[in-house]
Simulated scan of single mutants.
Amino acid sequence: MENANVDTRVSPGLHPDNVKQIDGYDDDTAPLLGTTLTAFSTAYEGIRAVHDAREKAKTNPTWNEAQQIIHTDDFAQKHLARISKGFDSVRATLEKQIAHFETELATPLESRASVGISGEIRKYVKDMTTEERHKFIQQAIDEGDAVSVSAVLGAPAYLSGLTADFQRTYTRYWNERSAPETARKLKAVQGAKAMIEERAGLVFKELEKAVGAAPHKAQALRKAKTEAEQAFVLKDIG
Score class of each variant (00 low, 15 high):
K193C: 05
E229I: 07
A214G: 07
K217I: 15
H216W: 10
V115H: 10
V233M: 09
A164D: 13
F75W: 08
Y158M: 07
E45M: 10
A99I: 08
L80M: 08
V90P: 01
V90S: 05
H51W: 09
G13F: 03
A99M: 09
E2A: 12
T8M: 15
Q230K: 15
M128N: 01
H79S: 11
S111E: 10
F87L: 05
S160C: 06
G46C: 03
A30R: 08
V125L: 06
I98L: 04
T171W: 01
V189L: 00
A155W: 00
F232W: 12
R199P: 04
N18M: 12
L14W: 02
N3G: 11
S111M: 14
A157F: 04
S11F: 05
T107D: 10
T226A: 15
R199L: 06
E143S: 12
A39R: 01
L186P: 00
K20C: 05
D236F: 11
K78M: 10
K58M: 13
D142G: 00
Y124I: 04
V211M: 07
R48G: 14
E45K: 14
D7C: 07
K135D: 08
Y158H: 05
E206K: 00
I121Y: 13
V147K: 12
L105G: 05
A53S: 13
H216Q: 15
L80E: 10
G86F: 00
N175E: 04
G161W: 00
I117E: 15
L234G: 09
T35E: 15
A210E: 06
E143Y: 11
I196K: 00
F101D: 11
E176F: 02
Y170D: 03
E227Y: 10
A76P: 07
E131D: 12
I70C: 13
L14D: 02
A192R: 01
N60W: 11
P61M: 09
L202I: 04
D17L: 11
A30T: 04
G116H: 12
T38V: 10
E132L: 10
R112F: 14
R54I: 02
G212R: 06
D165E: 12
